[in-house]
């Protein structure tokens, strides 16, 4: 009897780790919780304000910068081919230093080590533009991050953060995005909290913003300690978010309230 319970607990623990709490059949992108107007704004490539950043990113992609005098395009040639599907695989573990990096960090790594240019600040117009441009090349492709091998430890760290309670409100991410999605919270409907739209244009920001900025807004809401943009815990959390959204199409640049 005791052993049975123990076995059950072990099994439960195992499945908890291997399958997302929201099954694939119930996965819903955040956009599906928005109004018809919002959905129209996202799906019309001209009305979508995020496309302003994508276009700026395309120009930056072709502009040589830094002491190496090279443009992103000098090494990566045709963006639509070279970058297709890349955003759907991020965050990844960087081979050289074994750190988990998101798309923004990957782009900055190319800036500093390949172009010999200073890193771009988090949430700067240029970093958002390049990230939006790179992510846009994967639009419609299903999120598919790897959590095996060296990624596993980061995944565990992200999952632990997700289910831990934070802040003065003592709430976990799951309290809202797994146990109460679809419910109205004042004027907003809580979504499943997926990362597939980011960088996204939020009407409230009146600008494009990164996934890190969106997560910080949630942390602020529960009066939790802020995570800096380059905090490895944040990237680990982004990895966990991508995994639990496995299969959802990349929407970047999405449009949100």
């Amino acid at each position: 009897m005791r052993i049975g319970i123990l076995l059950l607990a072990l099994l439960a623990g195992n499945t908890f780790a291997q399958t997302p709490a929201i099954p694939a059949s119930e996965l819903r992108s955040g956009v599906s919780f928005g109004s018809a107007e919002l959905r129209a704004m996202q799906s019309d490539d001209f009305a979508n304000p995020g496309m302003l950043w994508v276009e700026r990113g395309q120009k930056l992609w072709q502009t040589p910068v830094g002491s190496a005098g090279r443009a992103c395009a000098s090494c990566h040639s045709d963006a639509s081919l070279a970058l297709k599907g890349v955003a759907a695989r991020y965050p990844v573990v960087n081979a050289s230093d074994r750190r988990v990096i998101d798309l923004e960090a990957r782009i900055n790594a190319c800036r500093t080590s390949q172009q010999k240019a200073p890193a771009l600040a988090a949430e700067s117009e240029d970093l958002l533009a390049l990230t939006a441009f790179v992510a846009h090349q994967s639009r419609g492709m299903p999120l598919a991050v790897s959590i095996s091998d060296s990624a596993r430890a980061f995944f565990d760290q992200g999952r632990d953060f997700y289910y831990a309670r934070h802040g003065q409100m003592d709430l976990s991410c799951a309290d809202c995005h797994e146990h109460n999605w679809g419910r109205k919270l004042l004027a907003e409907t809580i979504s499943q909290g997926h990362p597939n739209a980011y960088p996204a244009y939020r009407l409230e920001w009146q600008s494009l913003g990164s996934l890190a900025r969106r997560i910080r807004a949630c942390l602020f809401g529960i009066r939790a300690q802020m995570l800096a943009s380059d905090d490895p815990q944040l990237t680990a959390l982004e990895l966990f978010l991508a995994w639990r959204a496995d299969g959802l199409p990349v929407e970047a640049p999405g449009v949100r309230r």
């Binding site: 001209f46 496309m51 302003l52 276009e55 700026r56 120009k59 930056l60 502009t63």
Partner: peptide, 9 residues
């Protein structure tokens, strides 16, 4: 770089 714009006709 100028802030940017998009035009469609």
């Amino acid at each position: 770089m100028a802030a940017g714009s998009r035009v469609q006709v």
